[in-house]
């Protein structure tokens, strides 16, 4: 566990993009408290590609949700790009997420009524900086989805949907890309394609990536692998 001195040193001198100290999250189910995170200490530097592995229910997704500002921790410290989530309200975290975080989900989570192009563009629209055609073209070319832009999600394969989801996640140049089992619904070939793209994003643009996975082969693509069990990091 990080001491207060370690924490101060880490957050002031190293300026990590993600820093958590004794991070805890307890869910209340009926009258029972269920701890999901039992004190997570984690430091991630900008440009790192980090894989978080562990069995189901170990708290990986909860950690990712907290780092993405989707939910509040119960206690502890969490600094993301210098912002202390503990002191931020829901609106502040939403605004932060809009500008600094990109999500990639296992189930792709594309809006089913929109085309691939619209699914990507809506992220820019929500961010409020307007449509940036240069960035759009660059991302689309890198992910190789130029020929699929006018297709709706149901007309795309799983691999194509995930590539569109990655494009949507990075179109606004987020500080951190949070990927929740990005290859969980893909076959081996498409998994490899998606992992290669994440790797390329990390290498080419120094994109910070935090990826949750069950798959050891996927984890192997990352620079660093963190193992979780029972709501704690057990190896780093």
């Amino acid at each position: 566990m990080l001491t207060t001195d370690d924490w101060d040193l880490a957050t002031t001198l190293m300026e990590p993009i993600i820093a958590t100290q004794d991070l805890k999250k307890v869910f209340r189910l009926g009258k029972v408290d269920v701890p999901a995170l039992r004190g997570v200490d984690l430091i991630v530097q900008e440009g790192e590609f980090l894989a978080v592995v562990g069995p189901s229910g170990c708290g990986k997704s909860t950690l990712l949700h907290i780092l993405g500002g989707l939910t509040n921790p119960t206690s502890g410290h969490v600094l993301v790009d210098g912002n202390d989530f503990i002191t931020m309200n829901d609106s502040d975290r939403t605004r932060f997420r809009r500008h600094k975080i990109g999500f990639v989900f296992q189930r792709f989570n594309l809006l089913p009524t929109l085309t691939a192009r619209q699914n990507i563009a809506i992220a820019q629209h929500i961010q409020g900086n307007g449509f940036n055609p240069h960035r759009f073209d660059a991302v689309v070319e890198m992910l190789g989805i130029g020929g699929k832009l006018n297709h709706k999600p149901f007309a795309l394969s799983g691999g194509e949907q995930q590539r569109v989801a990655i494009a949507r996640a990075v179109i606004c140049e987020p500080k951190i890309l949070l990927a929740d089992e990005p290859t969980g619904n893909l076959d081996t070939e498409n998994s490899q394609i998606v992992l290669n793209m994440l790797r390329a994003l990390n290498r080419s643009f120094r994109q910070t990536i935090l990826m949750i996975t069950h798959n050891p082969e996927a984890a192997a693509v990352a620079d660093r692998v963190v193992r979780m069990r029972d709501g704690r990091i057990v190896s780093d």
Binding site: L70, S91, T94, R97, R98, N109, L111, I126, Q127
Partner: peptide
Amino acid sequence: EIGILKSLGASK
């Protein structure tokens, strides 16, 4: 879908 919009940072 509303969850997706929220994950993208859509405000209330």
